[in-house]
Amino acid sequence: MSKVFTFTPDYPHPVCSGEIIRGGTGYHYPDGGDPLPKEIEHIYPDYSLYPDLCKDTAYGFLTRGCPRGCDFCIVAKKEGQCSVKVADLSEFWNGQKNIVLLDPNMFACKEWRDLSRQLIDSNAWVDFSQGCDIRIMTEEKAEYIRQMKIKQIHFAWDRYEDKDVIISKFKMFKQLTGWNYRKMTVYVLCGFNTTIEQDLDRIYTLRDLGYNPYVMIYDKYKLKQGDELKKLQRWVNSRFAFATVQKFEDYKP
């Protein structure tokens, strides 16, 4: 039995078993619990367990850890405050048309060039599903990404105070790749240490820059029905509503 979040309730139904083994961040945060044996950690995934989800799609980590150590994020405590290579692409990919990467900060890893080349050579559609750190983006890294068949790349704008450097990096990345919002989504952390005005400033700025903002609410489960942040999330994350209603104050759910 596994779960990611500590606030997620356990499976409520009886389990016909002599022993239940529980694992995952939801049970063992922040110490992480016992690591998996090496031969299990590096085994090729059994994608047949989820035939619909994994139809011609490979999922996995090339790196673990992140040097940022942000207070709102569990990665540094769980995986270490350094981005390190943990696998080659062949450990979880064997010719599938799509690759979904779960890495927290691949481009902070010193082997990012080698890993990027593996993704380019795969000729598969690549989805960076987690929020890549735009603050460490360079023209060289952007060029490697441009050579990949990118289905979707996600960035993150968590700290409002990083506004100046983030805007300049987003402008540089868009200019070098020539991509638009259809390929570039930016997670916007709300409800942690920002005001609604700061949240809207980031959202409007990203839209003006040609990126697709996506609101992520910190500890959303604690919010009550009708909370302003829930309304904000519903507006931004609905592409139709966000494209139709230009200002948040005009949005009527």
Rank of each mutant, 00 (worst) to 15 (best):
F192Y: 14
L209K: 12
N212Q: 15
Q198N: 10
Y181E: 08
L200G: 05
Y204N: 11
P213C: 13
Y211C: 12
Y204T: 10
L206S: 10
L206G: 10
T194E: 12
D199W: 08
P213K: 13
Y211Q: 11
D199K: 05
N193S: 03
Y211M: 13
T195V: 04
D201C: 08
D208G: 06
I203V: 13
I196Q: 09
Y187M: 09
Y211N: 09
G210K: 13
T195S: 14
L209P: 10
L206H: 10
G191V: 09
Y187G: 08
G191A: 06
Y214Q: 14
L200N: 07
Y181D: 03
L209I: 14
K183S: 00
M184W: 01
Y214R: 15
V188D: 06
T205M: 13
Y214C: 14
P213N: 12
R207P: 04
Y214P: 09
F192R: 07
Y211H: 08
R207F: 06
V186Y: 06
R202P: 06
N212D: 14
M184Q: 06
Q198D: 10
R182I: 00
G191Y: 02
V186C: 13
V188A: 04
N180L: 00
Y211A: 12
D208T: 12
P213E: 12
D201T: 14
K183G: 00
T194I: 03
N180T: 01
T185S: 07
V188L: 10
D199E: 13
Y204K: 06
D201S: 09
T185L: 07
L206P: 10
Q198L: 04
T195M: 04
L206W: 08
G210P: 15
K183Q: 01
I196P: 05
Y214I: 11
D208L: 11
L206V: 13
M184I: 14
G210T: 15
P213V: 14
